[in-house]
């Protein structure tokens, strides 16, 4: 879904850039609280893994392919803020490979990083609230949320398209086509995300940030009252 230069006009690209800078700044602050400081290499691994799997385009229909976006995968593994940062790192490195426009980098970080990680993680949390409270629910919820995040990202692209397209194709036409094909790509996203999270849960459940939601978090927070007092 990498937007090349030229699809969207300069003001819209600047708006995407501003959103991306603000979002990345927020994520940098928040990631330091989400991420255990021993886990920096884990976040690096998540980014590297997303880069690798984004290379693996799978066919979804005649003459059309899709690839993992990875926002929900990263968000479930290392938390939404760190996860969005992982995707942002991937997109910046991909610019060296001439994948995704330079002026569109902010738009791409906003849509494929921030929107998928945060909207997808919200869906993930909502699913965990209704699924049985055990670790086996984590890959299922992650996969379903990942699947949903792809058409959501397609809709987000269309919103920017509505703001500043350089062509005059009707917004409704673009929305229908984008969401339609990305529902199919979302199936692949969901399967890859579910399998990957399942593999990490099976070997190192403690390394899955989003799995903490199915443990009993209240019992391990005996020192919690002292921290907000000091932090405020």
């Amino acid at each position: 879904m990498h937007i090349p230069d030229g699809f969207l006009d300069a003001p819209t690209s600047v708006a995407g850039g501003v959103l991306a800078v603000a979002g990345v700044a927020y994520c940098l602050r928040r990631a330091s609280t989400e991420l255990d400081d021993r886990l920096a290499p884990m976040a690096g691994l998540v980014a590297a893994f997303v880069f690798a799997v984004q290379m693996l385009n799978f066919p979804v229909a005649a003459g059309t392919s899709g690839h993992l976006l990875g926002g929900v995968l990263a968000a479930v593994l290392v938390g939404p803020a760190a996860g969005a940062l992982c995707v942002a790192v991937v997109l910046m490195v991909q610019a060296l490979f001439a994948d995704g426009g330079l002026t569109a980098l902010g738009l791409n970080i906003t849509i494929m990083g921030l929107v998928t990680a945060f909207a997808g993680y919200a869906v993930y949390r909502a699913l965990l609230a209704v699924l049985p409270r055990r670790e086996a629910s984590v890959p299922l919820a992650a996969g379903l949320a990942a699947g949903v995040s792809v058409p959501v990202a397609a809709a987000a692209f269309t919103a920017f398209y509505a703001l500043g397209a350089t062509s005059d194709v009707p917004v409704g036409t673009v929305l229908g086509a984008m969401v339609g094909v990305h529902v199919l790509i979302g199936i692949g996203e969901g399967v890859i995300t579910g399998l990957t999270v399942g593999a990490v849960i099976a070997s190192r459940p403690d390394l899955v940030h989003g799995a903490a939601l199915v443990r009993r978090p209240l019992e391990v927070r005996t020192q919690a009252p002292a921290v907000p007092a000091g932090g405020a």
Partner: peptide, 20 residues
């Protein structure tokens, strides 16, 4: 790409957690 992404990613996150 994978090597570069890991280096940049691990570096960024090491800085983030060191600042904390």
């Amino acid at each position: 790409g994978v090597t570069l992404t890991f280096a940049v990613g691990a570096g960024v996150f090491a800085l983030v957690t060191r600042r904390r």
